[in-house]
Design a binder for these strands. Structure first.
Lengths: 94, 94
DNA sequence: TTTCTAGTTAGACGTTTGTCTAAATAGAAG
DNA sequence: CTTCTATTTAGACAAACGTCTAACTAGAAA
């Protein structure tokens, strides 16, 4: 179930771009929405799906809701991809 | 465009299972379809999407069409995931 | 050439998805 | 308390998706 949710979540380009935006630091919903030619409601819908997939977490501060990336859920996806036998390229952290 | 196609393709559980089936060796469409409670037409539809995403290749032999896994297209996906800053776990080939 | 076999293509149909507008909520500020 | 700000929720809707049945195609076999 978990991996299915993760892959469904990142199958949409808007949601992938949201993750890219959160790579550096947490951002409030408004700042995220400002990067797209979409209504705040639509971006909120995408944030909800990312949250349900545990790819982001939220934290309230003043009037703002900050969203933060949680890339750890990708572990399962990586394991699956590698189980298929990936090419000889190196994607490790060294 | 390429990564989008890849992620869209693997967002469906049937298509992921097809890739799992092809991990060991190429298989004809009929043998693949036999693993699912779906019509041959439906499985053919999934094979077409996987083929368009270059996740599989096909080769005709006698009356059969053999499908073979091409996991190399995952490279781009892996690069993106790692660019998000993944956890400390090791997924390399050593 | 006719027929059989493996698989695809076409068309229909219900479900899911992504988007919008309008209304609602939570909390900050006055 | 009232109002303003940031964001979500509800409802509607078109487009995309996954599935089926029926018809078609490519090639093997007889």
């Amino acid at each position: 179930m978990a991996m299915s949710d993760t892959l469904k979540a990142i199958s949409d380009p808007v949601r992938r771009q949201i993750l890219n935006l959160l790579k550096e630091e947490p951002k409030p919903a408004g700042a995220i929405a400002a990067q797209f030619d979409l209504t705040a409601a639509t971006v909120s819908y995408h944030l909800k799906l990312l949250k349900q997939a545990h790819l982001i977490t939220e934290r309230r501060e003043k009037n703002f809701i900050y969203y933060d990336l949680n890339a750890s859920v990708f572990e399962e996806v990586l394991s699956w991809i590698y189980s298929l036998g990936i090419g000889a390229d190196s994607h490790d952290k060294n």
